[in-house]
Design a protein around this nucleic acid. Structure first.
Length: 545
RNA sequence: GCCCCCGUGGCCAAAUUGGAUAAGGCAACGGGCUUCUAUCCCGUCGACUGCAGGUUCGAGUCCUGCCGGGGGCACCA
């Protein structure tokens, strides 16, 4: 593609000028179009070693570049402090269009960043002691979208969740169910939610509260995750690690490596030697393990199956990161291969009012209720709108509104509009000719060029988003593409067919919107959001007509 | 007290990970459109990027110290 050619040309120019070119030559698409289509900071980055001022150096480099007779390049100039700006002919964007059509929805954005490395993405991982809440939805959708993004980028991905199916919380939960079943109030520190009362009512008299409660909670969580379109490759049981001796084995390994000591009747991990603020208890004085201990065995297990680990944790677990990394280092794993992503909190709003409690139960709002109110597409898209580093406001009313300020609607609508135009054109008996037979050089309108430029930036953005573990960047991109499509669609000078639109232009525009459709469908698909052919059901359509 | 995240026009926010003149949306103001099936399109107004230093050719972005908001600091999970 064009940027490789330009990079190679810049590298050659640097050599010709007697400079050592940086490993990665800076080349980007400037925000301001007056600065050309591509811009390099090569002269700025090397002016020191050249011992000359950046603008003069840039001009010398340009002299070398101009001798190379580069494809698509119209002119090259120096700007600002010493940027080298390439102004291209539109022909390079027609190559972009052909490429997008060639790779299609499945191939668009696909890249080899991961080079087949195995990566394990662990998310959700909540106690099987109750339903998933609205807040859990963010981590769930983020983890799933991140996994898809990594698959897109050439990783071999395992989607995994960890079930804390043993220990104090499970017993407390079972006791709370039993208490409600007996018509009593759960003890201090027990589970007091409305759902415990409901579930206790459903529990058969002869059921074991621990087993029944576990199965019920798990089934409940799984049902909602299924609705959300999230499927795990592995549901990993904490209990299994204890039962099969893996936990003791990892504890022994820590002891053998001298990372453990006894004090005050408890067993401690020397985590303070490895970056944690303090040492941590592994085995309590009562002989019970802390939460950390099986989790260490679990992470060791994951490292035996994958090259890299990603954990998606809620903000309330951030204090736990340092000790887990320390534990991995203590076991001889590379703590840098454990990447913990912390999701900040979600505030639910409806029409400007904060929603704290469930309408149905009066408890915390369940994820199920969010899905019922806004649907899967809107829920997924909305959860993914912002970086997980910042707190989120999720407006339920906005997520279902059919207006352009609803990002989900606007984005899906762009896809639907393209489909409607394609259908309309087909109905008119106009057939789309093979791309090779179509002259794309008639695509010169600003709106057309904007779509092509956005499409071009997609694949690079996918790589960046995968590196940053930031699916919201893909959301931002697809919104931008949708916006470019709407502007094109709305502009009377850009009609695909109709009076005054020459057949050649119709043909070129049909391919243009098909390329845009591919970009939209590819990105939405990876985010787990549908790309509809129409925004309105058949009934509504009839009504409107 | 210590740790993590955030702080960008009146409000919600983006910024190619250190680039040029800091996107876009809401609201306000001024025009226009009624379509290839949909509540739109174009323009104007509005920002010492929380504060103070530092590094750099260049800082919203990196470093230090403050201020403000949220979350966390268990032999709970």
């Amino acid at each position: 593609m064009i940027q490789e050619e330009l990079r190679a040309a810049l590298a050659a120019a640097a050599v010709a000028e007697g400079l050592v070119a940086p490993d990665e030559i800076g080349l980007e698409q400037p925000a301001n179009r007056e600065h050309g289509d591509w811009s390099s900071n090569l002269a700025l980055a090397t002016s020191k070693q050249a011992g000359s001022n950046p603008r003069e150096l840039a001009q010398k480099l340009i002299d070398h570049l101009e001798q190379q007779g580069l494809d698509h390049v119209d002119k090259i100039d120096v700007a600002g402090p010493g940027f080298i700006n390439f102004h291209l002919r539109e022909t390079w964007l027609y190559d972009v269009l052909r490429h997008v059509v060639d790779v299609g929805v499945d191939g668009f954005g696909r890249n080899d960043l991961g080079a087949g490395r195995k990566i394990n993405v662990e998310f959700v991982s909540v106690n099987p002691t109750g339903p998933l809440h609205a807040g859990h939805g963010r981590g769930a959708v983020y983890g799933d979208a991140l996994a898809a993004l990594l698959e897109w980028s050439g990783y071999e991905v395992t989607r995994e969740t960890y079930i804390n199916d043993r220990g104090v919380q499970m017993r407390t939960y079972a006791d709370s169910l039993a208490a409600r079943k007996a018509g009593e109030v759960p003890q201090e520190g027990g589970y007091h939610g409305q759902y415990i009362i409901d579930w206790a009512n459903d529990m058969p008299d002869d059921a074991d509260p621990l087993e029944w409660g576990y199965a019920h909670a798990l089934a409940d969580q799984r049902e909602v995750l299924d609705q959300l379109g999230i499927t795990f490759d592995v549901w990993f049981s904490e209990k299994s690690l204890v039962d099969n001796g893996e936990l003791d084995a990892s504890l022994d390994r820590l002891k053998d490596r001298g990372m453990v000591f006894d004090e005050g009747g408890a067993t401690w991990l020397r985590s303070s030697d490895l970056g944690d603020d303090k040492d941590r208890v592994l085995v309590k004085t009562d002989g019970e393990y802390t939460y950390l201990t099986p989790d260490i065995a679990y992470h060791a297990n994951k490292f035996s199956r994958a090259d890299e680990l990603v954990n998606v944790w809620g903000a309330d677990h951030h204090g736990y990161v340092a000790r887990m990394k320390a534990a991995m280092a203590a076991l001889g794993n590379d703590p840098d291969m454990l990447d913990v992503q912390i999701t900040q909190m979600v505030r639910l709003m409806r029409d400007g009012e904060e929603v704290k409690l469930s309408k149905r139960s009066g408890d915390i709002v369940e994820l199920r209720e969010v899905l019922e109110e806004v649907g899967v597409d809107a829920a997924r898209f909305t959860y993914l709108l912002q970086s997980i580093d910042s707190q989120q406001t999720f407006d339920l009313a906005l997520a279902v509104s059919q207006a352009k300020d609803n990002p989900v609607f606007a984005t899906q609508y762009a896809h639907a509009r393209i489909c409607r135009v394609q259908a309309k054109v087909a109905e008119a008996g106009i057939e789309r000719l093979p791309l090779a037979d179509v002259d794309l050089s008639v695509l010169t309108h600003e709106r057309e060029i904007e779509i092509l430029r956005t499409l071009f930036s997609g694949p690079d953005l996918v790589v960046l988003a995968a590196k940053e573990r930031a699916p919201h960047r893909v959301v931002g991109w697809v919104r931008e593409l949708a916006s470019a499509v709407h502007s094109f669609y709305q502009n009377p000078d850009c009609y695909v067919m109709g009076d005054g639109v020459p057949p050649e232009l119709t043909q070129a525009r049909l391919w243009l919107i098909e390329a845009a459709r591919i970009g939209l469908a590819a990105a939405l698909g990876r985010l787990g959001v549908s790309a509809p052919d129409s925004m309105w059901s058949d009934e509504a359509e009839t009504e409107f007509a």
